[in-house]
Design a protein around this nucleic acid. Structure first.
Lengths: 120, 120
DNA sequence: CGCAGGCATGTAGACATTCTACGCTAAAGG
DNA sequence: CCTTTAGCGTAGAATGTCTACATGCCTGCG
């Protein structure tokens, strides 16, 4: 992990934000501000997505064709851009989830080696 | 995860390399080339640390005071720079491991929410 | 004897993603 | 009113990977 230069806050693991956004949108359409709140809530207030990361990521994902957006009004009558997953986005999410669990497994293998691996 | 632009290979999760190196050195002193091999072996050949990442990382860690190095000869009679953990390095490893498991837990919370978290 | 291939270290530059730090508009509540 | 919260956005810095290249030495083989 990086030497957390921002005191208390946990930085996102680089490369996981896209997956988190896609996952959040699988529960249903949501606007950017809401996505940040969902991620924060589901992570037990550990993951704080900054707006400077969030909005560029949303634009990136939409440009990739994984998201579609639409301006609507929130239930509090504010204009907001709602995003939803495209079929390609669903596939991408599946792929990123699988890659993520592979990574976790691989790193766990280094942190807690089950047994001695042949090595001199 | 990043859109893996290098076809087949899994890119390291940004920020985890330092932890992997520190962990590897906790088994005992090792030189850079060897560290790369240990990580690869313990990860089931999934994590390939490129030299352009590895050596700068080692220099970084040494500059932080977490590693000490010493030139020696390998058992195949080649000169190599052996690294070992300093006490500060051990502390750093512990801290990064704990941060890592926090991260995994947080992300798991988003990927597989145990229950509905209060949210509108 | 020369040469290929593996061991071993290193740097330069490209690139992606995150962060901080701004700016803007509009609604709601005291 | 005027502050707070919701909501979208960009610019620029920092960071840590990667690719690609360069170098030297040892060992084994034709």
């Amino acid at each position: 992990m990086p030497a957390n230069r921002y005191q208390n806050r946990i930085e996102l693991l680089q490369g996981t934000l896209d997956m988190l956004i896609l996952q959040t949108l699988q529960w249903g359409p949501q606007h950017g501000y809401g996505i940040g709140n969902v991620i924060r809530a589901h992570s037990g207030d550990l993951l704080h997505v900054e707006t400077g990361s969030l909005y560029p990521a949303l634009h990136r994902l939409e440009k990739q064709g994984w998201l579609k957006s639409e301006w609507r009004l929130t239930d509090t009558n504010q204009r907001a851009k709602y995003y939803r997953l495209t079929p390609a986005g669903k596939r991408q999410l599946a792929s990123e989830r699988s890659r993520w669990s592979q990574m976790v497994e691989a790193i766990t293998g280094v942190l807690n080696p089950a047994s001695e691996v042949g090595w001199s």
